[in-house]
Design a protein around this nucleic acid. Structure first.
Lengths: 420, 420
DNA sequence: CTTATTTATTTCAGTTTGTAAAATAAAAAA
DNA sequence: TTTTTTATTTTACAAACTGAAATAAATAAG
């Protein structure tokens, strides 16, 4: 079973964006396919395009000429080949400073922002802490404005150079309308962030929830680039999930599906912060573990200690051999197996990426957990689902947000539809 | 909440097949769109096509002329309009006897077959009982051959007129390769039914599992025709599920997802016939209820009584006020709530169709069950998921199989890809 | 140094799949 | 009859490609 688990390196590859064309048989115009291919590979010659996309050489010439005259593509000098016979290919690349975008992740304790160029290269990033618990929309906008200002200073750029902004936050977000249906960060519900943003800034704003941001980050910069279908599961404050089908993010019909954390794994089970009982999250999320920890470790009741700290103590204790602490992790691990097996059973992805910042508790991500997961799955004739563990830096989310902005921006600049 | 539940009539509408074009922005050729539109509506004039598909009148002329000369479409005399002003539209329809298909459902106690024309009209149907438990592939093929022969006799047709055959059966079926990875109907696993079939019959064979058949039936003939996305859940021998996304059947990556019956709803819970514990099916399927019934009703241990009979007794007892019997249904109902809420939580469909032959136990399909389901779902800003209960006759499955055959046949006759 | 060979790119004459607008057809109303 | 209205057909033309021949730019061979 061990070979079914991969610990992913935090590699640094050229190019960004999905490397496969979108939806089955979907005939997106060659213009976009070419653009995405070049962006995906960093640089590419016309022949590469011809071969990779299986189009005629004539089309490659016409389309690249078109994109070059549109200013989004350019030829670059190649560092002389070593063993070439015929006419040398001339490499093309995205013109990086045609446009820039900012991606923002808003969270409970820290907000981050990343500024990238049109080719997806990071130009600058900033992080700010926040003391606020729940904010009004104007306060929220002030925080966003401040983040934008800071990252512009760090990049030594002006707001006019930013052509799109992507924002992600936990909660129920309506991607299509740009409204925040509900979020623990805000005082009120159903706030029209896009509308309010438009009164302060000229460029378009794209919103999504944080799990989708992470999934997008995997699709654009991570393990999912070469995968047509995969699922992403993340355990942080809650248990989040994202799904890519046919190289595009699947958001559910109303854009509020994939709430893995609130699927029920026990009738009348443990209490979840959503008010329900038996949610997967109530066995796995940091607050759930912290809750048990206060009992098991006979900690003094401290309402003020952040769950993160309690968990670290708990983890140290477990490592040191405290069997109560170990039980807590072990039970959580079993529930993780159940949750993952349900994902496999329903979505049948070839790969599940466990992704996020806090992929650290070995007890949760132990081989036995994945072994048990595979056992819980009907395995008649099934290829076992691969599991990849991907620990990113804390900029993942914001990078995902830049992907959101970039893909929308590409839509408007190249025309037509892109596989977000 | 009551308005969120619909009991569907078994209507009889003209036309068949999905009424909406496939995948988002998917540019399927107009030729196919036109064909599907006419088939979907039963009859349609060129103007209807022009307006509905938003194409130019010229294209309508060209394409219909093309389809007419290909022999798949024809003009029919219209029964004079009542209040028409201008030139009367001339109606077009699919030529029904260009081709015929047979759809077959193979099951534990009964096999059914339906023969339809190219427009999807039923020409004949047959059902045969079967005493066999587990068969060899040759025995299986003999049964299929016999069904085909009988339905041909009933329709007074010859095998040469059949251009495609669709077959569905419970188990793990590889739709793409036409192999039966595993089925309780067969002795051996990984049998190449398509290959074996090809040695006896000249026409192509399309295979799928029974839950997908039912979903296809809803998409082609039932409640799903006007829905872009919906889920189908069926409770029979097991708990099955199907999903339509963007007007096409979603099969999971390896074509073996959507095993709702084997998602876990209880760690170390009730024993399922799959060998695992805590599967949803172990609380809901007929064998699970029958298992409890033998305890509660203090029935003599009868290994021979079929679950259906035991269940009927149980149901009568519950109706008569036996509280043990009622508890059994009530618990099953609660688990159904949990299963459905998990479906909503993960897939977020606007509609779940509870479909199948045996939608009869009011205790399971009571309003309270759906009420509880809605309560189990995170409902912040969410439109409540509609529930429709659709009790079909026992030909549903075989009709779904004809849809499988018809859609593949259309592919080859009209060219290109269809949203199966 | 010149010529062949090889590989990359461009040019150019179709083809396919549509559209838009004018022309034609067929009916009811004036 | 003539007008009006709606349906269908015709015709010219555009967009997005393809395939094959022509051209470019390099190395290898003589």
């Amino acid at each position: 079973m061990k070979d079914a688990i991969t610990i992913m390196p935090t590699e640094d590859i050229a190019g960004c964006g999905p490397l496969l064309p979108g939806g089955r048989g979907a005939k997106i115009p060659l213009r976009q396919q070419v653009f995405q291919f070049v962006r995906g590979n960093g640089t590419a010659a016309r022949t590469d395009i011809t071969r990779a996309l299986d189009i005629s050489a004539g089309s490659a010439t016409t389309i690249t000429a078109d994109l070059i005259s549109a200013g989004v593509l350019r030829e670059i000098a190649t560092p002389g080949r070593e063993n070439g016979r015929g006419r040398p290919p001339v490499a093309l690349q995205i013109v990086p400073d045609v446009a820039h975008v900012i991606g923002i992740k808003l969270s409970y304790e820290k907000h981050t922002a990343v500024l990238t160029d049109f080719a997806g290269n990071i130009v600058a990033d900033v992080a700010i802490g926040t003391g606020l618990k729940r904010r009004s929309l104007p306060q929220f906008l002030d925080e966003i404005t401040s983040l934008i200002a800071q990252v512009l200073v760090a990049a030594n750029m002006t707001i006019g150079q930013i052509k799109a902004i992507g924002i992600g936050l936990p909660g129920i977000i309506d991607h299509a309308s740009g409204r925040i249906v509900w979020s623990a960060l805000l005082q009120d519900r159903n706030e029209d962030l896009r509308g309010a943003f438009a009164k302060r800034f000229p460029m378009p704003l794209y919103l999504d929830n944080d799990a989708n941001l992470l999934t997008l980050a995997e699709l654009w910069f991570g393990a999912g680039r070469t995968m047509r279908d995969f699922a992403v599961v993340t355990i942080e404050n809650g248990v989040g999930m994202g799904l890519v089908i046919d190289n595009r993010l699947y958001r559910g019909t109303h854009g509020m599906g994939l709430e893995l954390g609130h699927t029920k794994v026990h009738l009348d089970g443990a209490l979840c912060r959503c008010g329900q009982r038996g949610c997967l999250e109530a066995y796995l999320a940091d607050y759930a573990l912290a809750r048990e920890a206060t009992t098991a470790l006979e900690l003094p009741f401290k309402a003020l200690a952040p769950p993160g700290e309690i968990l670290n103590t708990l983890f140290q204790d477990a490592k040191a051999g405290n069997s109560a602490a170990q039980t807590i992790f072990r039970r959580a691990g079993r529930y993780l197996s159940v949750g993952l097996s349900n994902v496999v059973q329903l979505f049948d992805p070839p790969l599940i990426i466990l992704s996020g910042e806090r992929m650290q508790y070995d007890y949760l991500y132990a081989e036995e957990v994945f072994d048990e997961m595979q056992k819980l799955v009907l395995s008649e004739g099934r290829k076992p689902c691969q599991i990849a563990i991907h620990a990113w830096g804390d900029l993942v989310w914001a990078r995902g947000a830049t992907a959101l902005a970039l893909s929308a921006l590409t839509d408007t600049m190249i025309g037509g539809e892109e596989p977000v």
